[in-house]
Amino acid sequence: MAKLRPTPSQTVGPFFAYGLTAEQFGYSYNAIIDRTIADPDTPGEHITITGRVFDGNGIPVPDAMLEFVQADAAGNFRTEPIELLAPDSPQQGRFVLSGTTRNGAAYHSPEFRGIGRAGTEQTPAGTYWMQTVKPGSVDNEAPHIDVTLFSRGSLRDLRTRIYFSDEAEANATDPLLNEVPAGRRHTLLAQRREQNGQVFYDFDIRMQGEGEAVFFLMSE
């Protein structure tokens, strides 16, 4: 049978925020994917990943969107569909997605979603953050988060990865990281820092030029 041709990609444009990241930007529409990948009581080390996206002139990009997909702290990917839990479930009180179901009941998200979405903000220019747990190792890979970057001026999604600066041993044997030229691997390393008892990882993405992030060919 003849293969169907993939639908061509087009830019996300400058105006996605009220549809794809509405709550973050204060539009009157709910979000089902947001900056919380794991609830506060999800097992694992809770971390915040933050950074900026820069264009080829070194100017922060204030209208990009990032999506993170990752395993949980034990290295398991979420396989069950994400459903909203009824208000009377034992898990009531966990991170709440605002809004109501079609039956009018308030709803609650499950604890580990495994996917997050953040827009870069105007102030400080180009900043994003994402709350999650540090992922565990999957198979023979080092802990990592798959990142997809969308922006005005990008006609296709750009795929990169976050590895962790405090996982030098695991990073050294990661199969994909070892396919990256040694001089460029640093663009995939999120740098750990601790502040007021919280763990942060700083991860900037340079779209072009000096320090250009490594981007992977995922969809052909």
Partner: peptide
């Protein structure tokens, strides 16, 4: 696209 497109080749996975 001029300043928002990578110059380096994408690495296949």
């Amino acid at each position: 696209t001029i300043y928002r497109s990578p110059k380096e080749a994408l690495i296949p996975v």
